[in-house]
Design a protein around this nucleic acid. Sequence first.
DNA 1: GTGATGGTAGACAGGTCGGTCTACTTTTGT
DNA 2: ACAAAAGTAGACCGACCTGTCTACCATCAC
Lengths: 180, 180
Amino acid sequence: MTDKRQLLIDTALELFYRRGVNSVGINEVLSASGVAKKTLYHHFSSKNALLLAVLEQRHRVFIGWLAQQLEGAGSNDEVIERLFNGLSAWFEGRVPQLGDYRGCFFVNTCAELSDTDSEVSRYCQYHKWQVRQLIAGALTGESDTLLDAVCLLKEGAISTAYVAQEKCIAERCVQVLRGF
Amino acid sequence: MTDKRQLLIDTALELFYRRGVNSVGINEVLSASGVAKKTLYHHFSSKNALLLAVLEQRHRVFIGWLAQQLEGAGSNDEVIERLFNGLSAWFEGRVPQLGDYRGCFFVNTCAELSDTDSEVSRYCQYHKWQVRQLIAGALTGESDTLLDAVCLLKEGAISTAYVAQEKCIAERCVQVLRGF
DNA sequence: GTGATGGTAGACAGGTCGGTCTACTTTTGT
DNA sequence: ACAAAAGTAGACCGACCTGTCTACCATCAC
């Protein structure tokens, strides 16, 4: 029933993430998935609606992966180590469910938008907030400064790993956090 | 002589930064600047060539502004304070020559590209490297870890200020760096 | 004067975009 | 068995895209 719908989301996520939302047309999603155009517009009212479904899927996958990375960590040091080890693996393409690294899908999508106040950009905001909450839950203690440090370094690493092509940047985040 | 050329670059920078490179067509740049299409293609071989010129201009302006922010700082603490005060002003739109904040133009442009290995993405890489060099020159001492910390937090702040709309994030970077 | 240069306006070509629609087939629930 | 739902292929629409081209105008060096 929702078979084709899921296929469309999977195909679109792959294409949108790899090449950018604006660079991939509906027709390409259709030919890559082998689904008819009518079917797409049966499940989604527009390309934008498809994009929202794609972002939701990516969010679920990413949060699931991150939670799994962090679970069972005993100390803050261990949380930090696991987080940035995970990022390192992502940057090097060693996390199958996240695909070949091409930056943060949510950041990239925001960058492609003309409208700063759209539903899409609000969803990206929500995603980043959820990630922060997940990390906050893993860290023990009440230090907002440590949480800020970890989140900002994480974000910096994600950006730098992509734009400056520095795949080993995550290890340097851990180094930075050692002086904390 | 290069009057129209400069006008095209200025207009394109304004439009490309505000709304994204792929969302702005050549015709819009032309009508906004009041220049004829023939003239654009007389000065630039393609939209991509125009984009490169726009990036170069943005690079010059940004580096100039940053150098001015950092000059005359006596200590590392002062460098940090000036850097993140500057970023704060940028995020809040108080730096006229950088325009209303819409993230890092170079990061955004990379995100819009399909091709990871193009001349444009290499220029963005170069820009980030130059910014790092400028900060490295302002900081005294040999600590690569401090340099990493500053650059990664800076990058994290740029991303977070845009995607999560947290304009006051730069001050929290300074807070983080105090524990250093 | 005259030819090179840089400029104007805008038609045009060839293609892609998102989205609608017709006509037909397959699957599925009851 | 049969109707509703979900699927197929693909023509078509109007709009927009980059880039080329014609035809004409203004300036200026020599």
